[in-house]
Design a protein around this nucleic acid. Structure first.
Lengths: 333, 333
DNA sequence: TTGTAGGCGTTATCAA
DNA sequence: TTGATAACGCCTACAA
């Protein structure tokens, strides 16, 4: 592979001049620039990004930590981040945390050791205190889908409490008053917030929150089936089921049918996140939209603005969920 | 951040010695090694991976190009690749090609300019000739889910023809003889192979292939609904529908119900890929399993073996699809 | 507008 | 077993 040195020789100019045209420094005469460009083309020259990084202390890469690489939620998020960053010539280094504290810390270490210019984290298991500490370090850190106290400027987050409220309010509006709730893992902030919103909506309508109609799931399909099974075993009456995410709602729908339910007549179900697949359940899932793709691009813009000093980036830190009405939630008969 | 130089000073040894302990070179006395280790700990030293890369010409990163970051198929694939590579201390740089020739080439360029040690490609739009040419270059290249003529050692692929055959054979075995087929985009090799398998099974049972029962979809949900709509409009009779992937099958299922079908009684449907969600359609989707996650780890192992010279890596280049029986395919009544 | 020279933090080749 | 010292390919004052 040709180096800057060979280009300079062929073009008959100095290293510095070649470097200038590579970096689009305007202080080069058009004539010289053309000579250099020609030489680069002739040699098939490509800058060595590693050497650039070492010399400039900028790696043009941003680290991303997500819980999982698969799954509709993270897919949308990564797609949003990557497309925005890629368009700016930055690349993403992606790793996973699997929602486990050790693995998340491990992943962060990994990213830091890779000399990213910044890292965007979707962490769930690690504590706020740890993150606050992390932010004191040299590596710029940003958070997706998580609001860390005192670090608002570093966060792109969804108002999960409002989403939880919206879901429950919609259910109540359809005349339901016996409502089961399958929550996400309560060590996850968004799961906790959604539950809080649920309780607020309940309280607002003077419906007591009942422990026997509450189940803590795992945010996966199994959480939905396990939860529903739990409620069914307990012989509680309920006409609606709220799931803290769409995967659990899918699991619940599938399981409900296995148990002989006719949906949505026998049971109304609402989800959360509006993953792509939500419109392909039967009945089509009524859910709360989580604009995670948009939030991904926003996180990327935040990095572009703060780290790479790009202008004209208007940042929205906080997003609001909205109700998506489909067929799985109907009036209580 | 501390450098190797500061460590050497604190430990009272030379740069070279510190470098040796970093690289686990055994030609260092235990005593010296300990001194160095202590110094590193005291300074919180972390090797600068960029400098390492520049000096050693190894970046410890492998580039991945997938069509999309979202979507159940690519999620599984990336998860497989990443977990295997990450365990070996390598990192992945992920970018997208969107199944468009220009963008795929662009992504490959991008990855090459990033000095990856190798790249793993899931490309669909680019020609075999281009890939063969690419392989002549300096960058080691591997292919996921695609068999390039003459580059078998570089490929991890699925026998799509067999999968297509299996699907159709299963449908025929259930007594169906009027069978509609929604294919994937025919510029994609796997879509073409699946169709070939379909035709072979048809021929084997002396069922003529009918153009009027063929539709070329887009591998997305819309392909399923569009295709089914097309067949319905054409007033053809058919008792079974084969979709070349699960997303299209989902779309078809949803659309069939909108058109008043009772599934699977009125229409049997089979998919391909066995994405996670396939068990949550209604009826649960009978499909062909595509072990893409496993194939991802295999691609990673291939790189680990060939590029990073890891031992004990047994490689399987070719995978076989299997039938997954659920509820969407039943006997012709 | 262009060139010179030092430095970025390691690895690797020789010697010792 | 250890230590000098020259790469690695590029950026960036500083000088001209």
């Amino acid at each position: 592979m040709a180096t800057i040195y060979e280009v300079s020789k062929l073009a008959g100019v100095s290293l510095a001049t070649v470097s200038r045209v590579i970096n689009k420094n305007p202080r080069v005469s058009d004539k010289t620039r053309q000579k250099v460009l020609d030489a680069m083309a002739e040699l098939g020259y490509r800058p060595n990004s590693i050497a650039q990084s070492l010399a400039s202390n900028i790696s043009n890469s941003v680290g991303i930590l997500v819980s999982e690489l698969h799954g509709p939620f993270f897919g949308q998020m990564m797609a949003g981040i990557e497309s925005e960053l890629r368009a700016a010539g930055k690349h993403v280094i992606i790793t996973t945390g699997h929602s486990e504290e050790d693995k998340e810390k491990d992943g962060i270490e990994f990213l830091i050791s890779r000399n990213c210019d910044a890292i965007i984290l979707h962490v769930e298991a690690v504590s706020d205190a740890y993150l606050i500490d992390l932010c004191k370090g040299k590596m710029p850190v940003y958070f997706m889908s998580r609001l860390v106290e005192g670090l608002n400027d570093h966060c792109i987050s969804l108002d999960n409490e409002l989403g939880g409220y919206l879901a429950t309010q919609s259910v109540i509006a359809q005349g339901h008053s016996t409502i089961a709730y399958i929550a996400g893992p309560q060590f996850k902030a968004d799961a906790k917030d959604r539950l809080a919103g649920h309780k607020r909506a309940l309280a607002e309508s003077n419906i007591p929150f009942s422990d026997t109609l509450y189940f803590e799931g795992d945010f996966k399909e199994t959480g939905g089936s396990d939860g529903l099974n739990h409620f069914l075993e307990s012989k509680q009456e309920f006409s609606a089921l709220i799931c803290a995410n769409d995967e659990m709602a899918s699991g619940a729908i599938t399981y409900a049918r296995e148990r002989g339910f006719s949906l949505p007549k026998d049971l109304s179900i609402i989800g959360f996140d509006n993953i792509i697949f939500a419109r392909h359940t039967y009945p089509k899932l009524t859910t709360i939209d989580n604009p995670v793709n948009l939030m991904g691009t926003m996180a990327a813009k935040l990095v572009l603005k703060n780290i790479y000093k790009q202008k004209n980036m208007s940042i929205t830190h906080s997003f609001e969920p909205t109700l998506i009405t489909r067929d799985s939630l109907i009036c209580k008969s």
